[in-house]
Design a protein around this nucleic acid. Structure first.
Length: 493
RNA sequence: GAGCCAUUAGCUCAGUCGGUAGAGCACCGGACUUUUAAUCCGGGUGUCCCGCGUUCGAGUCGCGGAUGGCUCACCA
């Protein structure tokens, strides 16, 4: 490959680096290195200096800054654990090698063999005895002090963001720990991890617009899944007792600080359980992860202390509405409900149903107030087509949504296992669909058939992993917890 | 999809009343053998997001567009 190609399109800073690259090639030095065996990580040396002082070490990483002083120079080397200072001496390296080292650029990845010591100013450092260039950097990094702030560039070029903004990697390390903690917790509770299709013939399990795609060999359109729910419950029919799946869902909807078109959920199902079990499990999960990842069930989000210690209060949706809006919507018909909405200045569709009005009231008066963890329970049956009706009120369901910092962080219920009721609910959804609600459920005959074979009573829970990570990492935007959030493609500068 | 705001050097930003573009870091050359936002001397590297318009003259004013952020709407 000709490393000098496209030279005319490069700015001066990049042109200079290409020249240095060519100089290295001319000297017979491979600028892109090879396998390199390290003995330590930067942080390891800093943490164990007492034992390691005056010992030899082999480390590798990216040069983040350089301070040259004639015949002696300092540089900061960054690896995946942190930064450590390098000390170059002409005496140690010899003039020739020392001068070559002066040609290193910020951003170059090097392997170092050297002696661990502490400088006069007290900084733990490595005096370099041998250097191997592992990767020449051909683009300048952003300002060492201000870093990369342009959020557009941070998301589009996350690799640069990760190099220069130290907090970013921590967020994603925490994300990994949170998911690992959740997975271990569920496995310890007897849940089996499964994978179900993301390419669906019917997109079910939620009210959402799906993405469509096409299978060429079968010449058929498919949907990307909007939820794994209906597949997971088929597994309960098949005899699995407790299952969970962590994975992506795809919803063809707006993008915001809390929504990305593809997002990660954890859904789990417990045969012979109910919504109550799921609420207790939700509390346990949040408390467990908080303890493992943050070290306490009290966490801070955007300056507010959030106490995740179980148990969390529970409040039926209609009671919450009554409490925060002063309006009791219990037992009203559609028309009466719409009248109440008008009274309180809530705009609803002219033909809005009772359930629609309840949702609008909830969103307007209740949701913004729910800072500390709370379970909102007993959702109207019309907006909960997969949940079992309450024994004492068939217009409501045995469902709950936990709210924290005004976000709905999960959704769970006692699963509807009556195939006849389920079929009616689907028919209702299809009717809404026919009336233009393209987020209503599609009819899923096979799911009905599965229920007809018999599904044990069960509790189910869906957790929004991204929001959970936002909460635990104190991140106000979902983009901060997604390595590559969805962005509109843009022409190269 | 609507409203508000932003876009100037590789990065972070300034740019007055409309008069022809600036700082710090980075980079290039030089000095300097324990510095650490090293220091000192010298060097400004640019499609001022794009287009059209007003004007003798536009980074600056007007209109249109692009991209992004925030808020709202939909959703988890």
């Amino acid at each position: 490959m000709d490393h000098m190609e496209d030279r005319t399109e490069l700015n001066e800073l990049m042109a200079v680096r290409r020249e240095k690259l060519q100089d290295l090639l001319d000297l017979g030095i491979d600028p892109f290195g090879e396998k390199f065996v390290r003995t330590h990580a930067a942080q390891e040396i800093l943490d164990n200096f007492e034992d390691l002082e005056e010992q030899e070490t082999v480390i590798a990483g990216r040069i983040m800054s350089m301070r040259t002083h004639g015949k002696a120079s300092f540089a900061d080397l960054m690896d995946h654990t942190g930064r450590i200072q390098l000390y170059f001496r002409a005496d140690t390296l010899g003039e020739e090698l020392y001068n070559l080292m002066q040609k290193l650029d910020i951003g170059d990845i090097v392997g170092i063999q050297g002696r661990i010591f502490r400088t006069r100013r007290g900084e733990i450092s490595v005096e370099v005895q041998a250097v191997k260039l592992l990767s020449k950097s051909l683009r300048p990094l952003p300002d060492k002090w201000h870093g990369l702030k342009d959020v557009d560039l941070r998301y589009r070029q996350r690799y640069v963001d990760l190099i220069v903004n130290p907090g970013v990697r921590e967020v994603f390390e925490m994300r990994s720990k949170i998911i690992q903690s959740l997975r271990n917790f569920l496995i310890a509770k007897g849940y089996i991890e499964v994978e179900t299709p993301m390419l669906n013939v019917i997109a079910g399990g939620a009210n959402a617009r799906p993405f469509t795609t096409h299978h060429n060999a079968l010449d058929m359109d498919l949907y990307l899944r909007i939820a794994p729910e209906l597949y997971l419950k088929r597994l309960l029919v098949g005899g699995f007792d407790r299952v969970f799946e962590i994975g992506k869902n795809f919803r063809n909807e707006g993008i915001s600080t809390k929504h990305n078109p593809e997002y990660t959920s954890c859904e789990l199902y417990m045969a012979y359980g109910d919504a109550n079990d799921m609420m207790e499990l939700t509390e346990e999960i949040f408390a467990h992860i908080a303890k493992e990842v943050v070290g306490s069930t009290k966490i801070t989000f955007q300056g507010q202390e959030i106490d995740l210690t179980p148990p969390w209060p529970r409040k039926p949706m209609l009671e919450a509405i009554k409490e925060f809006s002063g309006v009791d919507l219990t037992g009203l018909n559609d028309e009466e409900a719409r009248a109440k909405a008008k009274e309180k200045g809530i705009t609803v569709e002219p033909n809005a149903s009772y359930a629609n009005v309840v949702e609008e009231f909830f969103d307007a008066f209740v949701e913004p107030k729910l800072i500390q963890p709370i379970f909102i329970t007993d959702h109207p049956v019309e907006v909960s087509p997969l949940a079992k009706r309450k024994k004492d009120d068939p217009t409501l369901t045995d469902r709950f949504e936990p709210f924290i910092v005004t976000w709905e962080v999960a959704n769970g219920f006692t699963e509807l296992n009556d195939p006849i009721d389920q079929e009616q609910r689907f028919r209702q959804q299809v009717e809404q669909r026919d009336q233009g609600d393209d987020e209503a459920h599609m009819m899923d005959e096979d799911y009905i058939r599965a229920l007809e074979y018999g599904m044990p009573p069960a509790g189910g829970l869906g957790l929004g992993i991204d929001r959970m990570v936002m909460l635990f990492t104190d991140s106000p935007s979902i983009r901060d917890v997604l390595l590559f959030p969805h962005m509109r493609p843009r022409a190269e500068k």
